[in-house]
Deep mutational scan, measured.
Amino acid sequence: TIDDAFRAIERAIQAENEGRYREALKHFLDGGEMIVTAAEKEASQKVRNLLLHKGKEVLEWAEHLAEWILE
């Protein structure tokens, strides 16, 4: 659900702030994927587009974090 997705993102932010970057990455990926999944089930085109945009933002952040971890 969207609530689960945002809880995962909150955990990711907390982990990132505490320097637990790999854990943060996992939570960002989980949250982003949950948002995209919820968007695919959404009946309203406007809400679907907003959710897809937010999911994409979260997944892009996860990608940047992963690249930073690997440096």
Rank of each mutant, 00 (worst) to 15 (best):
L29V: 04
F28G: 00
D30F: 12
A38D: 04
D30E: 13
V58L: 09
F28P: 00
A66C: 15
E42S: 11
W61N: 03
K56V: 05
L29G: 01
T1V: 08
N49G: 06
D30I: 14
R22N: 12
E18F: 05
H27W: 14
R20H: 08
A43N: 09
I2E: 02
K46N: 07
E60F: 05
E63N: 13
G31K: 05
D3A: 14
E33M: 14
E10K: 11
L50F: 14
A39D: 02
A66R: 13
E57G: 03
N49L: 09
D30G: 04
T37Y: 08
G55W: 14
R48T: 01
I2D: 01
N49V: 05
A62W: 04
D30A: 13
E60W: 07
I13H: 04
R20Q: 06
I69W: 05
L70A: 14
A15R: 02
N17E: 08
H27F: 13
L29C: 10
R11S: 05
R11Q: 11
I9R: 00
I69P: 00
D4G: 04
H27K: 08
E63M: 13
H64N: 08
A8E: 13
N49D: 15
L50N: 10
G31M: 05
R48K: 12
G32Q: 06
L51S: 00
G19M: 01
A12E: 00
K46S: 13
H53Q: 11
K54L: 15
E40P: 02
L70Y: 09
I13Y: 07
L70M: 10
I35V: 06
E40Y: 15
W61C: 12
A12W: 06
L29T: 05
V58I: 13
A24T: 11
E57A: 10
E33L: 14
E16N: 13
E33G: 08
R20I: 03
V47N: 04
K54P: 01
E71L: 07
F6K: 07
Q45F: 11
I13D: 01
L29P: 00
W68G: 02
T1D: 07
N49R: 07
D3R: 14
E63S: 11
Q14P: 00
K41V: 06
L25V: 09
I13A: 04
D4H: 09
E67D: 10
E57R: 10
A12Q: 01
I13V: 08
E67K: 13
E18K: 05
G55P: 01
V47F: 12
G32R: 05
N49H: 08
R48D: 06
K56F: 06
L59G: 02
Y21F: 11
E63Y: 13
N17W: 10
L52I: 09
E33Q: 15
A12T: 00
D3F: 14
